[in-house]
């Protein structure tokens, strides 16, 4: 379970998250939508301890993410993250991109790491690309590689930060299909996205962010089809 309790985050004077309260249950898929700059990415970074917070608590499986005693490297093994930019390691083959972290972080042998990597690459449809280098692949393929790389750590949670925003339109589908696949696997996910229809069809709930607060949080279909707040209505009417 991921719990955010009254989380505040600012960059110098700029308040980016203002008292965020949010709970994501095991097995749940939560989508996060909202205008640019509303703090969606920052919230994901805070959950992963890639950014510090100034107030409140974030608890993942009972562990306080920002407590000084928390081993963030261990914590991050439980939380996979995929970014807008796919960030493939250019010096490693597709297989080694995925096998690296299991080997050096989890201490798997080369062979075990290879098997893990193969399994996850096959799962995202890259089973025939093992020895290719990422620079030879399309953005969609590299993004699926990034997903496989995160999954190879066998995390309990996955965070997705606008993973289709940097993709050519014709490549968006394959990545969204991969997310659907994960949902069927029962993965717990927080998905920051601009794909409203995808969010409605795939997630359990949707949170609408507005200037650092959760303006509305509701079951996915209800939030998209029947938004309660004026700001949600305005936002949806612009993007739909």
């Amino acid at each position: 379970m991921i719990e955010l309790k009254n989380v505040d985050k600012s960059f110098d004077q700029l308040k980016v998250l203002k008292g965020i309260d949010l709970t994501v249950q095991k097995g749940e898929v939560l989508s996060v939508i909202g205008a640019s700059g509303s703090g969606k990415s920052t919230m994901l970074y805070c959950i992963n301890a890639l950014e510090k917070i100034q107030g409140g608590n974030i608890i993942v499986d009972g562990v306080d993410v920002h407590a000084p005693s928390t081993n963030v490297n261990q914590l991050r093994q439980k939380i996979g993250m995929v970014f807008q930019q796919w960030n493939s390691f250019p010096h490693l083959s597709v297989l080694d991109n995925v096998a690296l972290a299991p080997r050096i972080v989890l201490g798997k042998t080369k062979r075990e790491a290879r098997e893990i990597a193969e399994k996850h690459l096959k799962h995202v449809g890259l089973g025939d690309k093992l020895d290719t280098y990422p620079t030879r692949m399309s953005g969609g393929q590299q993004q699926r590689l990034a997903i496989a790389r995160a999954l190879a750590m066998e995390p309990g949670y996955m965070l997705f930060d606008e993973v289709t925003s940097a993709l050519d339109p014709e490549l968006v589908g394959e990545v969204l299909d991969t997310l659907r696949l994960l949902r069927e696997d029962g993965m717990t996910m927080i998905v920051v996205t601009h794909e409203i229809n995808f969010a409605r069809d795939v997630s359990d709930r949707i949170a609408f962010f507005h200037q650092g607060v959760i303006e509305e949080l509701a079951p996915a279909k209800a939030l998209v089809n029947n938004p309660q707040r004026t700001r949600t209505q305005q936002f949806l009417s612009k993007v739909l």
Binding site: L50, R76, M81, F83, Q85, N87, A101
Partner: peptide, 15 residues
């Protein structure tokens, strides 16, 4: 080495 790439490796649990 782009900063986002380093965030990606840290997010995998690398020290």
């Amino acid at each position: 080495v782009p900063e986002p790439m380093r965030r990606a490796s840290r997010s995998l649990g690398m020290s």
